[in-house]
Design a protein around this nucleic acid. Sequence first.
DNA 1: ATAAACTTTCAATATTTTTTGAAAGTTCAG
DNA 2: CTGAACTTTCAAAAAATATTGAAAGTTTAT
Lengths: 168, 168
Amino acid sequence: MKVADAKMEFIQTWGALGSAWGIPRSMAQIHALLLASNTQLSAEDIMEHIQLSRGNVNINLRELTNWKLVSKQNKIGERKEFFVANQDIWNVARNIVNERKRRELQPIQDFLERFKNEKLTGGKEEIAHFSKLIADLDEFVKQIDKLTELMIRMNDNIFFKKLIKTLS
Amino acid sequence: MKVADAKMEFIQTWGALGSAWGIPRSMAQIHALLLASNTQLSAEDIMEHIQLSRGNVNINLRELTNWKLVSKQNKIGERKEFFVANQDIWNVARNIVNERKRRELQPIQDFLERFKNEKLTGGKEEIAHFSKLIADLDEFVKQIDKLTELMIRMNDNIFFKKLIKTLS
DNA sequence: ATAAACTTTCAATATTTTTTGAAAGTTCAG
DNA sequence: CTGAACTTTCAAAAAATATTGAAAGTTTAT
């Protein structure tokens, strides 16, 4: 099998999986292309490789840059901007976790916070049940938060290897 | 604030957050309603409480049941089926992780497996780079898999508390 | 100041995902 | 068996999301 074909297949698969992960297909495809590429690529290169419009590529490159999964580079003597993917998979994973935490966990925390000081009126049983739910969620979110903080701060996968060894 | 209002707000918020988590709004709302409810509810009850069609409620209750977030119950002497949510938040989290793993991690593993025995042809550098990517991903996925296996098997949150204490 | 070389924007369009609700299916008491 | 009480299905409609591409904006060299 030609490596170029393998790459193309990787891009397609990563794109499809992206959807399952709640990541736009194009964004995932562009990311896959950059991950699989051993050279820097321009927006134009990307447009040609996977058939995507200029605007789409531009927007998704910006998003990938925000997520810190991709960075801009400049070739000396060239105006064009080039892009490379963060090649350290663990680093990529950390950035994704970080981003998802911000988007997915933060709103829950904000919500729960609002209920902390609320004095509820109504059926006694009902209040007890609901309050317990809020308290449980609050504690849960705090634990998850700590766990991700920990993961984000770790800077090599030795941590996980050791952790898993310890606990297996 | 009335507990009934608080519940309604919880349902709305959970529904909105569901979207961010890649979970259909209705499914998340139904789950929230059942979580916040201290009594079992019929499909009809749910339809009335949050304005959803019969079909929608039926399909999402099935899905929630598949995810093991909700279970059916029968009141003696009644034909109707009643539903209750799994109230242990950590259990809920485990089931969600489990489900997402099956849907999100398994396809990656399947994909990587196909490349293990492929002999690639093409530029030397290119092959080296791509092979490394595949190998890195493979190792990464295996580690994540172990970590989730571990989490799934744990049956109380003491584990996490200890873990975090140990590592903080 | 101008033009060439790029990048960014965004309204329109296309695609995908969710939701609906009416009809068909099932179960069970009488 | 029949009808009432429920549940399930699924094609069609609505809503949400992603993509396009032409036009506007920006930067740099001369």
